[in-house]
Computed example of a mutant assay.
Amino acid sequence: MTTQDFADYSGPMEAELNQLEERIIALARLSQQLREENRQLRMELASVQQDNSQLLQKISTASQRLEQLIEQLPEDA
C-alpha cells in the first residue's frame, strides 16, 4: 500500500470515526439523562411510599375506632 492508497482510506475512516464519536457522545448524554430521571423517580417513589404508609396508618386507626363504636351500639338496634 502506498502513501497515496493510505490517503484514500483516511477520508472515509475519519468520517466513520466522527460518526462513532457523535454516537458515543449521544449515548453518554442519554445515559446521564436516564440517571437523572432514575434519581428523580427514586425520590418520587420514596415520597409515595411514605404517603402510602401514613394512609395505611390512618385506615388502621379509623378501623379500630369504628370497631369500638360498633361495640358501643346497643344490641337491640
Rank of each mutant, 00 (worst) to 15 (best):
M1Q: 11
M1I: 08
T2F: 03
T2I: 04
T3N: 09
T3G: 10
Q4L: 12
Q4E: 15
Q4S: 15
D5V: 03
D5C: 06
D5I: 03
F6H: 13
F6A: 15
F6M: 15
A7L: 11
A7D: 06
A7S: 10
A7F: 05
D8M: 06
D8T: 09
Y9N: 04
Y9F: 14
Y9V: 03
S10G: 04
S10Y: 13
P12F: 09
M13D: 09
E14I: 00
E14M: 07
E14A: 08
E14T: 08
A15L: 08
A15R: 08
A15I: 05
E16L: 12
E16K: 08
E16T: 03
E16W: 03
L17C: 08
L17R: 05
L17G: 01
L17N: 11
N18M: 08
Q19C: 02
Q19K: 10
L20W: 00
E21Y: 01
E21H: 03
E21G: 05
E22K: 07
E22L: 05
I24S: 13
I25Y: 03
A26M: 04
L27Y: 09
L27W: 06
A28N: 14
A28M: 11
A28W: 01
A28R: 08
S31A: 12
Q32Y: 07
Q32I: 00
Q32E: 10
Q33R: 14
L34Q: 13
L34I: 08
R35G: 05
E36F: 00
E36K: 00
E36Q: 05
E37G: 02
E37I: 02
E37A: 10
E37L: 05
R39I: 10
R39G: 02
R39F: 12
Q40Y: 04
Q40H: 07
L41Y: 04
L41E: 09
L41D: 04
R42L: 07
R42G: 02
M43C: 07
M43P: 01
E44T: 03
A46C: 04
A46W: 01
S47P: 01
V48F: 06
V48T: 10
Q50H: 15
D51W: 05
D51L: 14
D51A: 15
D51F: 06
N52I: 03
N52D: 13
N52C: 06
S53V: 07
S53Q: 15
Q54W: 10
Q54M: 12
Q54K: 13
L55A: 14
L55D: 08
L55V: 12
L56V: 00
Q57C: 07
Q57D: 15
K58N: 13
I59M: 09
I59E: 06
S60P: 01
S60Q: 10
T61E: 14
T61A: 13
A62D: 00
A62V: 00
A62N: 01
A62F: 01
S63W: 01
S63Q: 11
Q64A: 12
Q64C: 00
Q64Y: 05
Q64D: 12
R65M: 00
R65V: 00
L66W: 00
L66Y: 00
L66C: 04
L66G: 02
L66R: 07
Q68C: 02
Q68L: 06
I70A: 09
I70E: 11
I70M: 05
E71S: 13
Q72P: 02
L73S: 03
P74W: 04
E75W: 07
E75Q: 12
D76H: 12
D76K: 10
A77P: 02
